[in-house]
Write a protein that binds this DNA or RNA. Structure first.
Lengths: 198, 198
DNA sequence: AACCGAAAGTAGACGCCGCCAACAATGCTG
DNA sequence: CAGCATTGTTGGCGGCGTCTACTTTCGGTT
């Protein structure tokens, strides 16, 4: 017998997201097609429209889950008891690890193409990560471990280094200098001590 | 009379690139369509195929011209006679300025989706910019202005800060902290002196 | 248990798109 | 001026995202 599938899929929304993430990882965002995803899920070409009003809506949902996982990864890598340098190193490791594992997803997350409503949720996700950095900065300042000055500026500086490096890491699939052999340590050290000789 | 256009356009290739860059700037890469560009140029929908084998080929050409202009901008902003700090500040300004003016283009340039042959040319363009940073680092080391160590690592660190900040700048169309009011100076200072108090 | 509205899936159509092949006009070069 | 490469044109293919109208199923109410 033709083993006919049930009329209702059960959890199509999740299946679509999962399939989308697989495709994203394997073939890049350009190869993502709602119809293809529908086919993979064994459902008609218009079914995805029931769960995502738009292709962009699906991408937004994907990005959102990315932010959630990134925030979790950073949170669980953070140990507030540590002195600044090892603490930052651990965070940097976590961030670069995420970037290496989810290059395309990270790109999606940083794409500034979300519709306004998802953008709010997005902003929330961003806040969870830059907020963490911000707290680290604030605490380090309180302990006198780093220079005074607008903590927001310092946060931006740290964020910029991390993000720039993450982009490089995600960019060349090869070797990714930074996440290997003491690369991270060296960079955090540089960030803390500066380029000028002391 | 219908003012019929000549059968040959004259310089369709350039017209397509120019139109593409306009669309890129105004509506983003997602809104780029070869057929639309053809319409704007007043030619038939298949004409672009004579000049770009692919849509990707057009994007590659665009990215390539971006690298060229970026390299020029950096070169002309660089003054080797300056001490490190102002020299870096000038370069950072130039890079961030480019990022602000050509956000979508920069994204295209960093996209890792080019076909292999264009990728070579791309690599050449990249080399012109990171090579410049590399030379700045090497000369600064020679003058004892910065710390010893693998110059490549230092170059990566500087590049990461610049690129991360450029992404932020390009990301939020508003205010872009860094390129305004002393933001750049402050960051370069941070980069040189580090976060730790001296 | 029967009903009924909402939720979830289907089928079909529309107008885009990129790309390809076959053909036509033009320009260049011998 | 003949012939060939270049650069255009038309038409068509299949895929895509999205919309509308229809159908099936689920779940809560009486």
């Amino acid at each position: 017998m033709p083993e006919s599938r049930p009329y209702h899929h059960g959890d199509l929304r999740s299946a679509l997201l999962a399939g989308a993430e697989r495709t994203l990882r394997e073939k890049g965002v350009g190869a993502l097609s709602l119809r293809e995803l529908a086919r993979e899920a064994g459902v008609s070409h218009a079914a995805p429209g029931r769960h995502f009003k738009d292709k962009q809506a699906l991408l937004d949902a994907l990005a959102l889950s990315g932010y959630d996982r990134l925030a979790r990864a950073l949170d669980s890598a953070d140990d507030p008891a540590l002195p600044l340098q090892p603490r930052l190193t651990a965070l940097a490791r976590a961030y670069l690890g995420f970037a290496a594992d989810h290059a395309e997803l990270l790109e999606l997350m940083y794409a500034r193409k979300h519709d306004p409503e998802s953008a709010e949720l997005m902003a929330d996700g961003v806040e969870r990560t830059v907020g963490l950095i911000g707290r680290v900065v604030a605490e380090a300042q309180a302990r006198g471990e780093i220079v005074e000055g607008d903590p927001e500026h310092l946060t931006i500086a740290i964020g910029a280094v991390l993000h720039g490096l993450a982009t490089f890491t995600a960019g060349d699939k090869s070797a990714a200098y930074a996440s290997q052999h003491g690369g991270v340590e060296e960079l955090v050290h540089l960030l803390l001590h500066g380029l000028k000789p002391r």
